Amino acid sequence: MIGEDEAENMVIEWVDTENLRKHMYAVSAIMGEVAKEFDGDSELWRRVGLLHDIDYEETKDNPMEHAMRSAEILEDKMPKKGLKAIRAHNHQHLDVSPENDLDNALIAADAVSGLIVATALVMPNSKLKEVRVESVLKKFDDSSFAKNIDRDRILYCQKIGLEKKEFIEISVKALQKIDQKLGL
């Protein structure tokens, strides 16, 4: 499986947009923390989170190719279950259903990362350290806040046995650990 340094280099090589890179770092951090909850392969889960959108700049105008292209790029660098999870995170456009904890965790982490970052940006100092689980839960329920974030995708956490509050707590802590890397 692809090592951490090679994965980081791929992000730099394939992704020009700084905010997209930060999103990928955020999803990776969340996936690593969630893996610990399930005694999962945290290396695999982190790499899946980090590389899930490696193709986004190339495929953003063609959602039917997004994630399929990522899996092609990563085919010899990641186990089949990792490639499937990456494809499944775009299941609404592809004929790949999420079926296991890795698949469902990626869908939930992908969405919750945006909600937490959006919440941080409206804090007095725009810092992740200021974000509280209760604040994110309130923002979750406010459909006018960060409208582009699909709350139903966040609820995929329930498919892996985590309640919304517990998942958000794990996710907030994960992002607070890498606040410097995210610039928040």
Rank of each mutant, 00 (worst) to 15 (best):
Gln158Glu: 15
Cys157Arg: 01
Gln158Arg: 09
Ser143Phe: 12
Ala146Glu: 11
Asp141Ser: 15
Lys147Asn: 00
Lys147Val: 04
Ser143Ile: 12
Asp152Ala: 09
Asp152Glu: 14
Tyr156Gln: 00
Lys147His: 01
Lys159Ile: 05
Gly161Ile: 02
Gln158His: 08
Phe140Pro: 01
Glu163His: 12
Ile154Gln: 03
Ile154Ser: 04
Glu163Tyr: 12
Leu155Asp: 09
Gln158Thr: 13
Gln158Ser: 15
Ala146Gly: 06
Arg151Leu: 06
Phe140Lys: 01
Ile149Pro: 05
Asn148Cys: 13
Ser144Lys: 04
Phe145Asp: 10
Arg151Phe: 09
Leu155Cys: 07
Phe145Cys: 06
Asp142Tyr: 00
Asp142Ser: 03
Lys138Leu: 08
Arg153Met: 10
Ile149Lys: 08
Ile149Gln: 11
Tyr156Ile: 00
Glu163Asn: 11
Ile154Tyr: 01
Ala146Ile: 07
Arg151Pro: 10
Ile154Met: 03
Leu162Asp: 08
Tyr156Ser: 01
Lys159Thr: 08
Ile149Glu: 10
Cys157Ala: 15
Ile160Asp: 07
Lys139His: 12
Arg153Val: 06
Ile154Ala: 03
Asp141Arg: 15
Leu137Gln: 09
Cys157Val: 09
Asp150His: 13
Gly161Arg: 01
Ser144Thr: 13
Leu162Tyr: 04
Ala146Trp: 07
Glu163Arg: 11
Lys139Ala: 15
Arg151Met: 11
Phe140Ser: 02
Lys165Thr: 12
Ser143Arg: 12
Arg151Glu: 10
Asp150Ser: 12
Leu137Pro: 05
Asp142Gly: 01
Lys159His: 12
Lys164Phe: 14
Glu163Ala: 07
Ser143Asp: 13
Leu137Phe: 07
Arg151Val: 11
